[in-house]
Simulated assay, not measured.
Amino acid sequence: MAKLHELGIKYGTDKTAISASGDLSYLHIYEHLFSTLDQYKELKILEIGVRGGNSINMWLERFPNATVVGIDICECDFEVIDPDRFIFYQADQKDLKKLGEIGLAHKSYDLIIDDGSHLISDYIESFYVLYPFLRRTGYYVIEDLYNNYAEWNLTRTTRPNGDGSAFNEFQNFVTKSIHLGRAFDQTKSNFNVFSIHQYPGFMILNKGLV
């Protein structure tokens, strides 16, 4: 079976870009982490921001046992290699009611990737809506976090992210929740983060040990 980085090149997704630190792309790291999903007979993957369909076809080929749900503010005008396993919703990430309806329609996900607007407010609010639908052995990914910082955003459309302080507050809140989980039972809460993993450009949150 081809690896994610090979498939990313095949389908032309920008997730193949090599990081300046570590000489690895997102997909090299994803392959290492998400290979644990191969053990499951059926998977559900949700990605926000799928314009062009490049990553959709990559997921479909890498995980032939997966149904892939895509969300984008633009129309779906691309062809997929297996239409029977792809479900598309045209929706604005800011429409939290619609995000909740999509989450509920498919009940649970093994992998959620936010590659949408890259605005801090959007991906934090999306996280609170969609994270409850993540399975305990799943991965919640927020991509392209360099957009949080003023050094990168001076001439970019994501400039509203400012100095990234809102992102830092979010990280601090999640980190506090993880450590308080050692002392207080959070299993009855929708917000139940077991771990955060930071990599060059993205972060992953988990509900359990995977």
Score class of each variant (00 low, 15 high):
residue 35 S to H: 14
residue 73 I to H: 04
residue 39 Q to N: 12
residue 30 Y to K: 03
residue 39 Q to R: 15
residue 36 T to R: 14
residue 62 R to K: 12
residue 42 E to A: 11
residue 51 R to K: 07
residue 83 P to D: 04
residue 65 N to F: 07
residue 82 D to M: 14
residue 32 H to F: 08
residue 54 N to Q: 14
residue 79 E to T: 13
residue 33 L to F: 08
residue 92 D to F: 05
residue 29 I to V: 13
residue 38 D to L: 11
residue 47 E to L: 03
residue 73 I to F: 08
residue 79 E to R: 12
residue 86 F to T: 02
residue 51 R to G: 06
residue 44 K to L: 13
residue 94 K to V: 10
residue 72 D to W: 07
residue 74 C to T: 09
residue 58 M to A: 06
residue 53 G to H: 07
residue 79 E to W: 02
residue 56 I to A: 15
residue 87 I to C: 10
residue 35 S to Q: 14
residue 65 N to S: 14
residue 64 P to K: 03
residue 65 N to G: 13
residue 80 V to R: 00
residue 56 I to H: 09
residue 91 A to E: 06
residue 45 I to V: 06
residue 68 V to R: 15
residue 45 I to S: 02
residue 59 W to I: 15
residue 77 D to H: 15
residue 55 S to N: 09
residue 41 K to R: 15
residue 54 N to Y: 10
residue 79 E to L: 15
residue 82 D to G: 07
residue 51 R to T: 03
residue 65 N to C: 09
residue 35 S to M: 09
residue 32 H to V: 05
residue 69 V to D: 15
residue 42 E to N: 14
residue 94 K to T: 11
residue 81 I to C: 14
residue 48 I to N: 03
residue 35 S to R: 14
residue 84 D to G: 05
residue 93 Q to V: 04
residue 95 D to F: 07
residue 73 I to A: 06
residue 81 I to N: 10
residue 43 L to H: 05
residue 79 E to F: 10
